[in-house]
């Protein structure tokens, strides 16, 4: 089954029968780098193909098939991000690290970092340490984990993340900040405690 573009000058056509063999892995890799969950990634890729089929008649042939599919996938990823961003059930534990009273903007006493075990700190190539950080990241609220992973593990540029998730850079830094303060505390409790 072929979908031909309307105008003759346009060269790109869609060939949905070959989509899975040609693009499934590419789209899946693209998604997993952003959502870090194989089931969610599978769902998003599937939805992308389905949406592609449904809107095939709107394809104008101006871009390649792959670019067109990626643009659909990008929408899906934003939708997914908005969904986890607005999740009500997972009430966010608003941990406050700073004083609001006279000492505004400074540390709250109970939240002050403790010094870490030196020997544990020097051994950062340790595999167990890497699994511990993974555990701590997965304990973060989903949206913080997603943004933190994209920025720190997948090493995306700030602009790119802001564009892809449709957030502002100050928004991004607030999330990175919350992620890092919680991560620091989680690592302290589980790994570096003297």
């Amino acid at each position: 089954m072929y979908f031909y573009p309307v105008s003759e000058t346009k060269t790109n056509t869609l060939n949905p029968n070959k989509w899975i063999d040609s693009y499934a892995d590419y789209l899946y890799n693209y998604t997993i780098a952003r959502v870090n969950d194989s089931d969610i990634a599978k769902d998003l890729v599937q939805e992308t193909f389905f949406s592609g089929l449904r809107s095939a008649k709107n394809f104008e042939g101006k871009s390649t098939e792959r670019t067109w599919l990626i643009s659909i996938l990008k929408r899906k990823i934003i939708d997914y991000y908005r969904k986890i961003n607005s999740k009500k059930g997972q009430a966010e534990v608003r941990m406050s690290f700073y004083d609001n009273g006279d000492n505004e903007g400074n540390w709250i006493e109970e939240r002050v970092p403790q010094s870490w075990d030196k020997s544990a700190e020097q051994n950062i190539e340790n595999d167990e340490l890497k699994s511990q950080i993974e555990i701590c990241i997965s304990k973060l609220p989903q949206k913080y984990a997603m943004v933190f992973r994209m920025k720190t593990i997948q090493e995306f540029e700030t602009d790119e993340i802001c564009k892809e998730l449709d957030i502002t850079s100050s928004n991004l830094w607030v999330m990175i900040h919350r992620a890092r303060t919680q991560l620091r505390e989680c690592m302290e409790i589980n790994w570096f405690k003297k």
């Binding site: 970092p113 340490l129 620091r184």
Partner: peptide, 18 residues
């Protein structure tokens, strides 16, 4: 100072993971 040092440690671990 302590926080900054620990934050850097977390960055190094994440770099390894990356």
């Amino acid at each position: 100072r302590l926080y900054t040092k620990q934050n850097s440690t977390i960055t190094s671990i994440c770099k390894e993971k990356a």
